[in-house]
């Protein structure tokens, strides 16, 4: 289109009427002065912050460097990862079962799932963890046998539910309530035509779920699930109340001994940040896998 209508009258009106061929007209992109000013201000603030990190002796970077890869800290990172992996795996497994209970046709199973989700979302994680830690006080022995009848095998509760398994149990049961809702949301987001088509083809029920419904549900489950895993990962720091040697507890122990609070908090912080970054990268690849056949 030629620029015929209302050429700017102020400057060089004659230039608008030159006979340059239309293909040769230069395109001048719109300028964004506000964006430049905001960027400059942000850069100044960032520089100030970085300067503070480097020059303020309170950060005690040599102490940070000394402890960042210390063996006790590395072992604590391992414990934190262990808690996260077990908590996530058990939590999502139970969550999957709860989600399908809530989606089932049985009013009883539905009610049990709703009740579970209600209770375990209501009880603060730290309260729940302390309950599990004190399980031996409630039940001295655990028996495997006929319900309400005689037992075959018997365990000493205090020996069986050690601090570590109490923590995993607490984290997993807590996680399951959230996981159930995330899985249910994902399943509901799959077009009902998909299950109809699968049913019309006579595909067995479990296979329908595993092969047709869940892979499609994964697309909406994954972003939420990644949030949950990351929040569980950081949530493991709550387990420090049970004197388990995870990352935050270990950092506390060390600064309790040497008084270097800030650098040791930084040790824990940087590990949390790095590992969360790794989880986000992993999330990206898993999401890409489940996006097969999708246009967006």
């Amino acid at each position: 289109m030629p620029l015929t209508s209302d050429p700017p009258l102020s400057k060089a009106p004659e230039r608008a009427r030159t006979d340059a061929p239309e293909a040769a007209l230069e395109i001048v992109p719109v300028r964004h002065p506000g964006r430049w000013i905001a960027s400059a201000l942000t850069a100044v603030l960032l520089a100030q912050f970085a300067h503070g990190l480097v020059t303020n002796p309170g950060w005690e970077w040599p102490v940070f460097a000394q402890y960042f890869t210390a063996e006790t800290i590395l072992r604590a990172v391992g414990t934190t990862l262990q808690l996260t992996v077990y908590g996530t795996a058990l939590g999502f497994l139970l969550g999957l079962v709860l989600a399908f209970m809530r989606l089932s046709d049985s009013p009883f199973l539905r009610a049990v799932a709703v009740g579970y989700i209600w209770i375990f979302r209501a009880v603060p994680l730290i309260v729940q963890l302390l309950f599990w830690f004190n399980l031996a006080y409630l039940y001295k022995r655990l028996d495997i046998g006929i319900p309400f009848g005689p037992g075959f095998v018997s365990f000493d509760t205090a020996g069986l539910v050690g601090a570590m398994s109490a923590a995993v149990l607490g984290l997993a049961l807590h996680q399951a309530a959230y996981a159930a809702e995330i899985v249910r949301g994902g399943v509901l987001a799959v077009d009902s035509g998909q299950t109809q088509a699968a049913a019309a083809l006579g595909i067995p029920r479990l296979r329908q779920l595993r092969r047709i419904v869940l892979p499609q549900a994964m697309r909406s489950i994954l972003p939420n699930a990644a949030n949950e895993v990351i929040s569980l990962f950081k949530g493991t720091s709550i387990v420090s109340v049970m004197a388990i040697g995870e990352l935050f507890y270990q950092a506390q122990v060390i600064y309790g001994r040497n008084g270097r609070v800030v650098p040791l908090l930084m040790v824990a912080t940087v590990w949390y940040v790095l590992l969360t970054g790794a989880l986000s990268v992993l999330q990206h690849y898993i999401e890409r896998h489940f996006a097969k056949g999708a246009t967006r």
Binding site: D191, G193, Q194, Q196, A197, A198, A199, A200, L201, G202, I203, P204, R205, R211, I212, P215, Q216, F290, K292, G293, A294
Partner: peptide
């Protein structure tokens, strides 16, 4: 489900499985 394997059904909106290839769509059942 077994009875249905003897009866083919074609839907208005196709309802192909979007995450499976064309070949996998056909071989699944």
């Amino acid at each position: 489900l077994k009875q249905r394997t003897g009866i083919g059904f074609v839907f208005q909106n196709f309802h192909l499985f979007p995450h499976l290839t064309v070949l996998e769509n056909i071989t699944e059942a």
